[in-house]
């Protein structure tokens, strides 16, 4: 079988959009889990809330892109509330955090079912499709790739180039020392949790037009998000980008060349092999080498 140029272009785009998808669903968790060490089992529901807020915004006449930004901010605000009420009492107690966030995920799903019902009208994929030879590609998948790059870039800038970013990392790494030099650790952690939640909300908002927005949708993504963050390791941006690139790339490539089932299997095999040889994830390995 010879590969035609249009087929190759199409395959590349499909690869990039798989990677982008994995990156946007994982980035928020990378902040909460990879950086802050909070095992947020409600991450899938944060994505779901992002999608539902986008839906609500569009239904109330907002422009889709505006609704997406507002949805991300709204999930960020919910993140702050959750941190104040729940998480701040549980830092450093992993099993307690897991139980609390798992309970939170059940509550969030059921609250959304009660408000919206198990199935409600969604929003169609915006924009059209472009033709590449014999193939056509949804323009929105290019938007997704752009959004992933943008969110990764934004996260990088916020965490490394701002005063808040430095304080946030200090508050997580050495809370006592940070407090001793005058960082308000409580407040900083609250903001970081809100920032991670907003990123999750943005991920969900970006998912809204390509998937079925239903209350149970979080369950589909939470497993893959955790896998990406664990494989990526503690580095938020480098970890997410490298793990999403590797896992999404392998998944998409194998799925396209064989079947979707083998694609999923290949993703799992790669994740297991990486964690066997790089137990701290890809970015953890880089840090040790430096």
């Amino acid at each position: 079988m010879t590969v035609q140029p249009d087929q190759l272009a199409n395959l590349t785009l499909s690869l990039l959009s798989s990677i982008a998808l994995l990156a946007v669903i994982s980035l928020g968790l990378a902040v909460l889990f990879g950086m802050m060490g909070v095992i947020n089992l409600a991450h899938g529901e944060f994505l779901m809330l992002g999608a539902f807020f986008t839906l609500t915004g569009v239904r109330h006449g907002l422009n889709l892109w505006v609704a997406m930004v507002l949805a991300a901010l709204a999930v960020g605000a919910i993140g702050v509330v959750v941190e104040r009420l729940l998480i701040q009492h549980l830092y450093g107690r992993m099993p307690a955090t897991m139980l609390a966030t798992w309970g939170l995920s059940l509550i969030l799903v059921q609250v959304v079912v009660l408000i919206y019902g198990p199935a409600s009208n969604g929003i169609p994929t915006p924009l059209g499709s472009i033709r590449i030879g014999d193939y056509s590609v949804s323009e929105y998948s290019l938007v997704l790739v752009g959004a992933a790059v943008l969110l990764l870039g934004l996260t990088y800038l916020v965490l490394t180039r701002t005063r808040y970013g430095t304080m946030a990392r200090a508050a997580v790494m050495l809370p006592d020392m940070a407090a001793a030099v005058g960082v308000d650790v409580r407040r900083t952690n609250m903001l970081t949790f809100g920032f991670g939640s907003a990123l999750a909300g943005a991920g969900g908002a970006l998912l809204a037009p390509i998937t079925a927005v239903v209350p149970s949708m979080g369950q589909t993504y939470v497993g893959r998000a955790f896998m990406t963050v664990v494989v990526g390791g503690p580095g938020v941006v480098a970890g997410t980008a490298s793990a999403a690139g590797l896992l999404g790339g392998v998944n998409s490539l194998v799925s396209n060349l064989t079947t979707s089932v083998l694609g999923t299997a290949a993703l799992l095999v790669v994740a297991i092999v990486i964690l066997r040889f790089l137990p701290t994830g890809i970015s953890g390995y880089w840090e040790r080498k430096r």
């Binding site: 499909s14 959009s17 798989s18 998409s252 799925s255 396209n256 079947t259 979707s260 999923t264």
Partner: peptide, 14 residues
């Protein structure tokens, strides 16, 4: 054949 937990249909579309 698509696993029930999958919602990425990129490969099928191709």
């Amino acid at each position: 054949f698509i696993p029930l937990e999958s919602s990425d249909f990129g490969a099928v579309i191709n």
